[in-house]
Nucleic acid binder design. Structure first.
Lengths: 156, 156
DNA sequence: TTACCAGTTGAGAATCTTTGCAACTGACGT
DNA sequence: ACGTCAGTTGCAAAGATTCTCAACTGGTAA
């Protein structure tokens, strides 16, 4: 265990508790343990604006606690993704990049020219999905809707 | 070059030309060369009912022409996916599995317990997607809708 | 038919991601 | 506080996918 970074950890936890009061509750509700690596990784995700890949998250994490392993980063990303807490994007074969899901669920429109991601949400679509699943004998646990498009060109 | 399997190749090509008269035209139209590896891989995809992963496709391919490399299988899958000719599915971290896109576009409902895939299509949803994209200033090139669910349990 | 050349391939290295397993540690009950 | 144990972790190794680059080959034009 790294004792040298104890204060940074306290700092992080304090920060984390302010920014995302629900995550830990969500996690516990899902029967998931709140471990130190997870707390640190979640904090990194909630306090960043960019869409880091696993390696980047790993590097940021080991600055806070250098015992964290890359495996754990990956495992945590998968866990959070399944919970719907983050989204994973993979552009043209590069490594997956992750983004914190905002409180509300939303879908994505990806600009195939620039990779830009636009978030949107449609209750109508959600409702239709429910109906379809029901008619097929299923309950939806979660879903993924991604539109790939390019900016509309007018005239020309 | 494998000359030993020349007759199998002729067989394959004949077959291919019957089953999917459009693929090669589509490919050429997209400025893509029709090479022997691609022909063989496409034939494998069009003549199978299951959802093979890259390694399985590779093994089937080298039975016809043992000079084909795994790299080429992956490259071809990416190519076909971009063209919309096949769909890629990735269940719980396992390797990607591929499925020929049927003439008609369709979406997927994935059983999270068994991995079973149900195909469906909803004009309503398609239409809503168009509207949403339009209102965001985009034209949809393609999209992916995946519902993850589990069989509805009655009573109990 | 032949020559040409940009697109494609095979092989292996590099990169990205998951997994097996022994050691460790939260959460819960006492 | 303390013990317990299923859930987690770190590490190393395996597995999956992409990349690099020299050699090769379809399609085109002469």
């Amino acid at each position: 265990m790294q004792l040298t970074s104890i204060w940074r950890i306290v700092e992080v936890m304090k920060h984390a508790l302010n920014q995302k009061p629900d995550y830990e509750k969500e996690l516990r509700k899902a029967g998931v343990r709140i471990t130190r690596p997870r707390r640190i990784i979640i904090d990194i995700l909630t306090s960043t604006e960019d869409h880091p890949d696993a390696m980047k998250i790993f590097h940021r994490a080991i600055e806070i606690d250098d015992s964290i392993s890359l495996s754990t980063v990956y495992r945590t990303m998968n866990l959070l993704e399944e919970m719907g807490a983050i989204h994973r994007h993979a552009f043209n074969g590069g490594p997956s990049r992750f983004e914190q899901a905002h409180g509300e669920h939303h879908d994505h429109l990806i600009d195939i020219d620039t990779g830009a991601v636009v978030e949107f949400k449609s209750d109508k679509i959600e409702k239709l999905q429910e109906e379809i699943a029901k008619s097929l004998g299923y309950d939806i646990v979660h879903h993924r809707l991604e539109l790939y498009g390019r900016k509309t060109r007018h005239s020309s």
